[in-house]
């Protein structure tokens, strides 16, 4: 598990090729520029889903990622609009703020297990929405709109990130930004799972009593994981806000939180890259069923139930199952 196999290298190479070469080429050839927006959304949703996957890794069902995405979107928007901070500083700040909120909320709720934890997180998105409606700083139902586009960044006079406002179309720039962030997220996730923290998570997932007998501080590790998970949510949310140039209390809803969780289920809880695939399939699956009109949700739900019923280990289990058994 420690050494990256050649098969994995090929997969990662293919992914990078698809993102940075194939997708732009195809979009250029077909002229479907709107596709950039779709793929950007998938990448950002995949970042938030990666966080949800991580809470699954400590045996907790997290249906509250929408709350942290919303928090991230507001923090970034407020910093950029009201304090004039560069978006590129507001982005990590959004993640960190979401992580701090997660620590405060996590203290009492991370003790809960199974359906109890799931129910509380389910309510969380609604609580954040209501808070955003009530607080003066979030501007209530009007939300925050006309958020300026990310400004340029230069270090010692050398431009590193171009000014988005000066671009003719920001689609490609946002697409690359989202993809780079997604790749960084999943690289970090992979690394985390295969480092000591990941091993300790596995130990407590398999036997909490035994884990604490060998000195693992279970509540601390849970907290760290929940904070990292929410950090990803905050980053995803802040990016969305910047692309839409607006944030409203309804920007992320309970349904979004549920989708983040479904992305993980669908891709496979046993695979680090499961939520990425799950997000892609779920997002496109929904769009493809658009033709069905009022039956869209029904058919979509039935397919989801069938997939979870017949592929309990997710879509990635199909590929893995054929090759090496481990």
């Amino acid at each position: 598990m420690k050494n990256i196999s050649s098969k994995q290298l090929v997969s990662v190479g293919l992914l990078l090729f698809a993102i940075f070469v194939a997708a732009p080429l195809i979009i250029g050839a077909t002229g479907r520029w709107d596709f950039y927006f779709t793929l950007t959304s998938v990448a950002l949703l995949a970042i938030a889903s990666a966080g949800v996957w991580l809470t699954f890794y400590i045996g907790r069902i997290n249906i509250g990622q929408g709350a942290f995405a919303l928090i991230g979107a507001y923090v970034s928007a407020i910093l950029v609009v009201k304090s004039g901070v560069s978006f590129w500083i507001s982005l990590p700040a959004a993640g960190i703020f979401a992580a701090i909120v997660a620590i405060v909320i996590g203290l009492p709720i991370l003790r809960l297990r199974g359906v109890y934890f799931a129910m509380i997180t389910l309510v969380l998105t609604q609580v954040v929405t209501l808070t955003a409606l009530a607080l003066p700083i979030t501007n209530g139902a009007k939300g925050i709109s006309s958020i300026p586009l990310p400004s340029g960044v230069s270090l010692f006079g050398i431009p590193i990130i171009p000014d988005f406002a000066a671009m003719e179309s920001t689609k490609l720039a946002f697409y690359y930004t989202a993809c780079i962030l997604m790749i960084a997220t999943y690289a970090a996730l992979y690394r985390l799972v295969n480092s000591r923290l990941g091993h300790l998570c596995r130990s407590m997932q398999q036997n909490e009593e035994l884990a604490s007998s060998i000195g693992v501080n279970i509540s601390y590790i849970r907290m760290v994981i929940f904070a990292i998970s929410s950090f990803f949510g905050g980053i995803g949310g802040a990016m969305f806000g910047s692309i839409a140039q607006s944030v409203y209390p309804s920007s992320f809803q309970v349904a979004d939180s549920v989708n983040f969780m479904l992305n993980c289920f669908l891709g496979g809880l046993g695979y680090v890259f499961g939520p990425m695939l799950g997000t892609l399939v779920l997002y496109f699956g929904w769009d493809l069923l658009f033709e069905l009109g009022k039956y869209q949700l029904l058919v979509y739900s039935i397919i989801l139930i069938a997939v979870i019923r017949f592929l309990p280990n997710g879509l990635l289990s199909v590929r893995i199952g054929k090759g090496a058994s481990k």
């Binding site: 985390l192 000591r196 923290l197 091993h199 000195g215 760290v224």
Partner: peptide, 16 residues
């Protein structure tokens, strides 16, 4: 190996 947690000298971030 996982049970040697207490013998670790590096921090969790260090392993990352």
């Amino acid at each position: 190996i996982v049970a040697q947690h207490l013998r670790a000298k590096a921090s969790l971030a260090g392993y990352f």
